[in-house]
């Protein structure tokens, strides 16, 4: 079932770009543009996560946060304010994370995923075409047949699946799969992509994007 995300952001362009990115990776979104409207929607509908801008008209993000806190919906604040004080207020009010504008889409997706996992709302099975990934078992099947992957290949596959339709650079793959303290060459990524393509028959779906990196496409 698709996760429902409420985007509370008064700047229509920012709201749209967030919506586009979330739609790409398979979230269902709803957009509202001020605090009062957001409160109405939250009371009315069931959301898995709220992306909440702090400076919004009619009722600011902090005030809204206080009102919706008892509902136990995960909240990530989006704000242009960089001040530590505001971060502390936001987190104290019960927000789960804090994104400072401008932010990168994959950073937002990663944080959303972390927050959803904390609330036990993460997927246990991820699917792409005829591939199924059973996350709790760490098992990958292609057409019901188990395929053996090395740990790094498995991690790489998860990153691709979670950022479906978004191109990631080799550096981003390294950071997410090998960790920030990996000093190997970006060639390592190419090697692993090559073997994933081969093992899972993804030659047509893992696209090489000129000057950027790789993208998993439907």
């Amino acid at each position: 079932m698709k996760k429902r995300i409420l985007i509370v952001e008064d700047d229509i362009h920012i709201s749209n770009i967030i919506k586009m990115n979330l739609t790409l990776v398979g979230y269902e979104t709803e957009q509202v543009y001020d605090g009062m409207e957001a409160l109405d929607r939250i009371k009315g509908g069931k959301f898995d996560l709220i992306l909440l801008d702090v400076m919004i008209p009619r009722m600011d993000g902090f005030e809204l946060m206080e009102k919706i806190r008892p509902m136990q919906i995960p909240v990530i604040f989006l704000t242009a304010k960089n001040a530590v004080f505001d971060k502390v207020i936001g987190l104290k009010l019960g927000a789960d994370d804090y994104m400072v504008k401008p932010f990168e889409a994959i950073e937002l997706l990663a944080r959303m995923e972390t927050v959803l996992r904390r609330y036990g709302k993460e997927e246990t099975i991820m699917s792409f075409q005829d591939i199924n990934v059973y996350i709790d078992k760490r098992e990958v099947t292609v057409r019901e047949e188990v395929v053996e992957l090395t740990p790094k290949e498995y991690e790489l596959l998860l990153v691709l699946l979670k950022n479906k339709n978004i191109a990631l650079s080799r550096e981003q793959f390294i950071e997410k799969v090998w960790g920030g303290d990996f000093y190997g060459e970006t060639r390592t990524v190419d090697m692993h992509i090559k073997s994933l393509r081969k093992k899972l028959n993804l030659q047509d779906h893992i696209k090489t994007i000129y000057k950027i990196g790789y993208r998993l496409e439907d």
Binding site: D11, H13, I14, I17, I18, M20, N21, L24, M55, A80, K81, N82, A83, K101, P102, F103, E104, A105, N165, I166, A167, L168, I209, I212, R215, E217
Partner: peptide, 30 residues
């Protein structure tokens, strides 16, 4: 604070759209 906000809001859109366009499949309308 206001300057920061007023600078970052357009920047967020610009960076967001530019990044979206460079990392997703080309679609004319988008």
């Amino acid at each position: 604070n206001n300057i920061t906000h007023e600078l970052k809001t357009p920047l967020t859109s610009i960076i967001g759209y530019a990044n979206y366009m460079r990392s997703t499949k080309y679609d004319e309308a988008t």
